[in-house]
Design a protein around this nucleic acid. Structure first.
Lengths: 341, 341
DNA sequence: GTGAAAGCGCTAACAA
DNA sequence: TTGTTAGCGCTTTCAC
């Protein structure tokens, strides 16, 4: 069932039917009702390609998710972010199109996405400290929001992030308060902005107590169970084993925990293992200090906000963009002027 | 830069340019090279909406992911599946469009996806035992592949699944071999096909040793850390605490483990906790028996296969459709002996 | 308040 | 081997 058929069925022109369906004022209320009812009865939905071609909008948002070439690992946190964003898109009639992309040839991908015109805007995931995609997207004039930040990039851009630095500073303090002095940091690749910030928070907390970070207890890699396991095993079997682990991902923490068990250590008693994206972070963890930032639901909220921001940028391309909001569970930011919400 | 402009630039007709770019044979090799070079230089990519309108194909595959209304939980396993599928799509020039959808109003969603025509086929995730979407999609004539199965559905359809039943049977046997007699099952909602199969495997193993499953040690719910924590705490504090837990998800297992720790029990010593979608499943877990099915990489493989299958169904709509696709492949260590790695 | 007609950017008969 | 022409299904002037 397409517009022409619907129009014929109603004995009306395509124009009128289109107007009725799209809420244009110059249609009589009578016809509008008639049209709407018929559309529902006959199960008519406009063909989105045709609509897009005619309007120049595609009613879709692209999400580009970097996939590590080495371990082919997808960060589970994306799932929650995507879920939040998807909610907003669904409510506004947008589709979400995902591209999973290795690190090579990214630049071309963005250019071609632009040219093919199948998205009206995009969300950039997993930014690196000096991520060049931001400049590229600005050049291309494509509306975008970054999930995370790129600290070394000067250009203004909209972003939504959680406060990695503060989270890790607090987590480290928490462990220090419990009396730990050798605290291992199991981090993600530190060219990723979020991992870099986490390390910063960790080092800040140590420095505040006059402790120097020991390179031997800091490591960075792909956040898998295997990596967590391998690193923890090595450290625990080493000369000065850490008494606590601060782990940058729930998944890697599983490996760390398993390694401790394999060596006959009881997590929570013989060794403390703390991770930040754990929905149980607020529960007993050797003490009652809340240490989490990125619970499943806060990440979902972040996704919602990112999507809302992007859609409003698309709706009003000229409007000034929000600057920064909320420093509770996650932080939002952008280039100019105060933000809604 | 669009086709018309490119054609003008080359002093050729749009048709010829189009043909050259799309590999039609009737273009002279000379012009083809000239066209291709110009296209690259001028950074031309065809507008996918227009192309889709003209060809009737949208070069996109839809993935519909059910999101629980209650806990708004996204199963992390989707991430890996999606990653595998995405790889295949990218290689074939397809986009992946995702819809996250609550349980209500699903039916309409599929109808409207069909009508809007923005995907050429779809992957259905999270099927329930008697999932009605299969009949619906068959009715709609939309090519689709199910990630999982719907046991109570008679109609033929293509699916990719891991062998939940056998995995849980083996895991249960493993725990029984270790001497456990009270083994708790912490399962997903049992209207979901995968959860139902897992329970089946669990019960089969018990029955084989003449043990009756105790309803008090079986529970099903949303697979979150919080749920795992709550259930484990309740069971461990109960009159006859289980000595082992068989947990249907890595995430829930984290909650179970935490609950045990909170009660002063050491996982792996005082209580065994076994989960199947754990990349460390092949490692020491109280013994050296491999018990996992769904490692991150096997799920990714499943995604690849599903995508490939779907694309070939789309390419050859008349060809007889497979009604089943790869099962054993994804049961690493079960059908083919000890696990790789 | 309604309709006719001209595109949006591309592909695919059909002609030459 | 190349070009002409007519759509794909919709929106959007412009005219009535």
């Amino acid at each position: 069932m397409n517009l022409r058929q619907l129009a014929e069925h109603l004995q009306l022109s395509q124009t009128t039917v289109s107007r009725a369906l799209n809420g244009y004022p110059e249609v009589s209320e009578d016809t509008r009702q008639r049209v709407i009812r018929a559309a529902r009865e006959l199960n008519y939905s406009p063909n989105s390609r045709a609509k897009g071609l005619a309007t120049g909008r595609s009613m879709a948002i692209g999400h580009v998710i970097p996939v590590s070439d080495r371990h082919q690992m997808v960060n589970p946190v994306f799932g929650d972010f995507i879920a939040g964003a998807g909610e907003v898109y669904a409510a506004s009639g947008y589709d979400m199109v995902m591209s999973l992309v290795g690190e090579a040839g990214e630049e071309d991908l963005y250019r071609s996405i632009r040219a093919r015109g199948n998205v009206d805007g995009m969300v950039v995931h997993g930014p690196r400290l000096d991520d060049c995609r931001i400049a590229l997207l600005n050049d291309l004039g494509m509306p975008f929001v970054v999930h995370g930040r790129a600290t070394r990039i000067e250009a203004p851009y909209a972003w939504v992030d959680s406060n990695s630095e503060r989270a890790f500073e607090r987590a480290t303090n928490h462990l220090l308060d419990l009396g730990h002095r050798r605290i291992a940091l199991v981090n993600g690749h530190e060219d990723m902005d979020f991992a870099w910030r986490r390390r910063l928070g960790y080092e800040t907390a140590l420095a505040a107590r006059g402790l120097a970070p020991d390179p031997a207890t800091m490591c960075a890699g792909e956040m898998t169970e295997l990596y967590g396991h391998e690193v923890a095993r090595r450290l625990l079997e080493g000369p000065e084993p850490p008494t606590a682990f601060l782990v940058s991902s729930l998944i890697a923490a599983i490996g760390v925990r398993r390694a401790a068990q394999d060596l006959g250590l009881a997590p929570g008693r013989d060794v403390s293992i703390v991770t930040h994206d754990d929905d149980l972070g607020y529960m007993k963890n050797g003490a009652d200090v809340p240490i989490f930032t990125a619970t499943r639901s806060s990440v979902r909220d972040a996704g919602r906000h990112a999507a809302q921001m992007l859609l409003s940028m698309i709706a009003a391309p000229q409007a000034p963009r929000p600057t920064r909001l909320m420093e509770a569970e996650f932080i939002l930011g952008a280039s100019t002027g105060p933000a809604p919400i």
